[in-house]
Amino acid sequence: MDRRNFLKILGSGVAGAATGNLLTPGRTLAKETPSAKEFYGILVDTTRCIGCRRCELGCAEVNGLPVPDISESKNENLLKTIRKTSDTQYTIINRYETEKGKIFVPKRCMHCNQPGCVAACLVKAMRKRPSGQVTWDLNCIGCRLCMISCPFDIPKFEYNKAIPRIQKCNLCYDRYNNGVLPACVEVCPTQALMFGSRKQILEEGKRRIAANPDKYIEHIYGEYEVGGTSHLYLSSVPFEQIGFRKDLGTVAYPKYSTGFLYAVPFIFVLWPIVMLGINRATKKSKEDEEHHEEKEKH
């Protein structure tokens, strides 16, 4: 090996190492996160919800979905089972029996600050809008990675359609652009849902907890869960009792994968160099061999 080759290898190695170092998780993430103050969201006060399902009705009307029957007799039967959102129901109400009686919990997309679905999307069909909404676009290729990546099991796929789409709550993005409140907030008869900027609803949630220390538990679900969400929940009982996962941690989901993804090119560049280096180091050069042979002859 000549001097030039050696320098080439060393140079590319150093460059690789430098890029690798630049791309370690911690540094890049700070840039990626937009400031959460501007995000809009909804504060859901589960102590106020009366389970009338008008939000489901309002949601269906606005989004052109099949209108559900929300008559009382129907509700009683329907709420016996814990339901999930579906491709035709962006928001649903579940009923939980707890020590503090029946508690109704509206379930819909949490609109995470750093959504796993957005990070997983290959074609940027899922997007986190600057105003906080996580929306879906038509350029989706139907890979359904967003469904797997969501910790709340929200994006739903239209399996029974010829040209299927991903369906989920988009926090009434169109209505927001027209300056109208989300449909569910508009129709809620008890103001269990409060729309506002994330900062505003977080403050309001904390105020309610401080003013009624006996009524609420001292936790706002979504303040820190999976790096913070735009939907915040207040509750009078521990959240695991009303169907929320407590094992999600406070790390944003993309954070888990970005680290690994950045490591791929890092190893991709460096591993061949290492191998090559070891190979060069252990292989006897021709000169050496000849020299050796000559010695033996003598």
């Binding site: 190695g13 280096g277 180091a281």
Partner: peptide, 9 residues
């Protein structure tokens, strides 16, 4: 030198 560089890598 080769050996040392690969160790560093």
């Amino acid at each position: 030198i080769f050996f040392l560089v690969s160790i560093a890598y």
